[in-house]
C-alpha cells in the first residue's frame, strides 16, 4: 500500500482481477489468477477487499469501512496492519492498484 494520501487514496481493481476464478470453502478462498497462472489462498478480508472494488474505484477509507461491515465487525475494529497487509498483497499480485499510480503509468 503506498503511503501517499493515507485513507483518501483511491483504489481500483485491475483487469487481472476481473478474470479470477473463485472457490470458497468455509472462510478460505482459493483463487485462480489467469494472468499469472497462479493459485492463491485468500482469507475473508482479502477476498472482501476485491469484492468491494468490483463496485468501482473506492477510497481506502471506504474500502475498509465496507470490509468491516461485510465482516460483521464494528467500524474501526479491523486491525490497521491486517488491512494494510491484505491491500499490499493484492497490489503485489497485480490485482489492485491506486488510481493515481494507474494514471501515472498510462
Amino acid at each position: 500500500m503506498s503511503d501517499s494520501g493515507e485513507g483518501a487514496e483511491i483504489l481500483i481493481s485491475t483487469p487481472a482481477a476481473g478474470s479470477l476464478r473463485w472457490q470458497q470453502w468455509d472462510e478460505v478462498y482459493l483463487v485462480y489468477q489467469a494472468s499469472s497462472a497462479e493459485t492463491h489462498v485468500f482469507n475473508d478480508t482479502t477476498a472482501l477487499i476485491l469484492r468491494c472494488l468490483e463496485h468501482g474505484p473506492q477510497s481506502l477509507t471506504a474500502v475498509r469501512s465496507w470490509t468491516e461491515t461485510a465482516l460483521g465487525v464494528e467500524q474501526g475494529q479491523l486491525a490497521t496492519d491486517h488491512f494494510a497487509f491484505a491491500v499490499g498483497r493484492l497490489e503485489e499480485l497485480g490485482l489492485v492498484d491506486s488510481l493515481e499510480q494507474a494514471l501515472a503509468t498510462q
Partner: peptide, 29 residues
C-alpha cells in the same frame, strides 16, 4: 479434513497442475 486443505494438498502434489492452468484449478476444485 477441511476441503480447502485437501485442495492445496491435491494441487501441490499433482504432476501437471501448473501445465493445465485453469483446467487444473477447475478440475481439482
Amino acid at each position: 479434513m477441511a476441503k480447502s486443505q485437501a485442495f492445496l494438498m491435491v494441487a501441490t502434489n499433482a504432476f501437471n497442475y501448473e501445465v493445465l492452468d485453469e483446467t487444473a484449478f477447475r478440475l481439482v476444485a
